[in-house]
Each structure stands twice: as C-alpha cells, then as structure tokens.
Design a protein around this nucleic acid. Structure first.
Lengths: 110, 110
DNA sequence: CAGTCTATTCGCAATATTGCGAAAACGCAA
DNA sequence: TTGCGTTTTCGCAATATTGCGAATAGACTG
C-alpha cells in the first residue's frame, strides 16, 4: 500500500466518517435516486423486450414462472422500484437467459 | 471465517463444472439451482473482495450504508440466498461502484 | 495470559416484495 | 358498436429481506 501514514488505531474510524460525508455530500441523495430510477426503468424495459422477443403475453410468461399477469405488469412498469434478484432470475430462466451481476467502478470526473 | 473454500480460485472448479454438467444434463431444475447457488456465492465473494480492496471492516462498511456488521456478514456468507438489488446497490454505492444487470442468453445443451 | 478488533451466528421485530383476484382501460378487428 | 384478448391498476394477505442487539469465536498483540 502506498499509504505510508502510521497506522494508528483511531484514524480508521475517522476515515470512515470522512468517507461517509463525502459519499453523501459529493453525491446528493436525489442524484443517486435518479440513477437508480433510470436503472430500474432499463430493467423494466428489458423484461418487456425479452418477453416480446419470445412472443409471450404477460399472462403466458406469468404462468411460466408460476405467478399472475399483474405481477409481470408490475415488473414491466418503469416506475417499479422493487426488483429483486430472485424475481429477475425467475424471469430470465423462463426466457432462457441468465442474470449477470457485475460491480463496475464509477468513474467520478474530478 | 470458518469457511475457507471461498479463497480457492477457479482452476479446480472447471472440472467440477464439467462433472456437474454431465450429472445434471437434462435436469434443468436442479441445474438451475446449482447455477443460482454458485451465482450467490460469487456475489458474496465479490462483496468481500470489494470491501477488502477498500480496506474497510464489516462494521465500517455497515456504517457507510447505515446498517450493522451482522448484516454485512450475512451478505458475505456464500450460502446466503437473499440478495436483493436494493442491498447490492447500497453496497456498491458505498464502494464507489455501480451494479450492472444483464440478461444473457443461455446456450442450452452442449 | 488479558485485551482488542474483527468476524460470525442467532433471534425476532420492522420493512419490503410477492401472490393473487378483481375491475377497469386499452387495442384491434368483425 | 360489440366482442375478445391484453394490459394496467388497486387492495390486501403471504412471504422474504432487512434492522439490530447480544453472544460467541477467531486472530493478533503486548
């Protein structure tokens, strides 16, 4: 590690405090929510795309994964914020896909 | 961490993968569960990797996202199956990452 | 050895997501 | 217009995930 500062015991928690401050000062909650909202919107659209590509109705897809059409509709709603990994996997499975999850670094332009 | 197998890397898993593919070929349900289990394991490991790379303890990361260490520990447990998109995003956000979700086609049968 | 930091496990309450039916709205074609 | 299939919205129960403290175990140091 390039950090040559003496590793005293206390500074660690202070650093966390600072990080915490930076996290929420540099990146306002509303901006974070915006990005999340857009991500959810994309998921919803993708589900609809895949279902359409498979030529299935909401009811048909619902039956494939053992639920009802209203649930599928909710998933395809761009404003829905409750996407879970479990549900995405069920959808993907029925559509012959798999869900890939990646953590990618955010490049924060200085 | 009593479970040290998380530290083993991929090399040996290829053979295991082949064996499992032979055993479970034609049995989608079980294969699917296996893949899910492995995916969860990978997520858990990834979270731990990212946290370690950020030089944070579970308690520190927990505070960053407004929760407790036991929750982080649970997320890093390879056997945990309750990963949610919401939580992954909170973790990612605190670690300066974003969660990317992709649906990728499964090529069934080999 | 004691002391400290870290990680892990357990239990239960609080919150979030899903299940599911019903009704209404939409699109389209006869 | 009607009829039919599809989609959307709503409400609530059922299930799943999270919050959180407390207790335990492990690693490391003096």
């Amino acid at each position: 590690m390039p950090d040559n500062k003496a590793k005293t015991l206390k500074p660690a928690s202070d650093a966390v405090e600072i990080l915490h401050r930076r996290l929420y000062e540099g990146k306002p909650a509303r901006l974070k929510n915006l990005e999340e909202a857009r991500a959810n919107e994309e998921i919803a659209r993708r589900i609809q795309e895949l279902r359409a590509a498979a030529a299935l109705t909401q009811t048909q897809l619902a039956k494939l994964i053992g639920t009802t059409a209203s649930v599928i509709c909710r998933l395809e709603d761009a404003d829905y914020e409750g996407h879970s990994l479990a549900m995405l996997r069920r959808i993907a499975g029925a559509l012959n896909q798999r869900v890939e999850i990646r953590f990618v670094p955010i490049r924060r332009s200085a």
